[in-house]
């Protein structure tokens, strides 16, 4: 794992590592760096689809709740109006859509990110504490097919980082 002191450096390093053929790597930073996720070869998340599904389920269940109550469970004739008075069911349907879509978004994000996560090897590195403050890290993982402890270490050193460390599992 190599430490950098600026967003430009880590971005450049990530691009070089990707060009070199490394794929199993991750970059860590105190704030999102434009293009860094793309540079490490991470291009798309399926989250928006998940949110869309959440929204549709929310809309259907919101409407069905009202339909069930007003038409099936306890039909009440108020001045000869239809039981399924759908226009007045729209506001609650809308709220249920937003509620479920947003909750899906957050839960999906946490799940896909593996949060909450009580343990991660990168936290074993003492200097990594500064990732949430002002330092940027590029970590090439041992699962990468090109990974070779000596060669990878050498490669990282060639990127002129501030520091290079090995992460214990």
């Amino acid at each position: 794992m190599a430490e950098f002191s600026g967003p430009e450096q880590v971005l450049e390093a990530a691009r070089q590592a990707y060009a070199k053929g490394y794929r199993q790597m991750d970059a860590y930073s105190p704030f999102p760096v434009d293009g860094l996720a793309e540079a490490i070869g991470f291009r798309r998340t399926r989250l928006p689809l998940f949110v869309l599904v959440g929204g549709i389920v929310g809309a259907l269940s919101g409407f069905f709740l009202q339909y069930y109550a007003a038409v099936i469970s306890y039909p009440l004739n108020v001045g000869g109006r239809p039981f399924n008075s759908w226009p007045s069911f729209i506001p609650i349907t809308f709220e249920a859509t937003v509620l479920l879509a947003a909750l899906c978004a957050v839960v999906g994000m946490l799940m896909r990110n593996g949060l909450p996560r009580p343990y991660h090897p990168v936290f074993n590195v003492q200097r990594f504490e500064r990732v949430t403050r002002d330092k940027f890290f590029l970590c090439i993982e041992a699962t990468d097919p090109l990974f070779d402890e000596k060669k990878t270490l050498k490669f990282l050193e060639s990127l002129s980082p501030a520091n290079v460390t090995t992460v214990d599992p």
């Binding site: 704030f31 996720a37 928006p48 957050v106 896909r112 990110n113 996560r117 990732v131």
Partner: peptide, 21 residues
């Protein structure tokens, strides 16, 4: 903080969700 580590994969999903929210 749920074990947040600042990984850029995490950040990308985080920003996506922030935008959607």
């Amino acid at each position: 903080s749920l074990g947040w580590d600042g990984s850029n994969r995490t950040w990308l999903r985080y920003e996506t969700v922030y935008l959607l929210l």
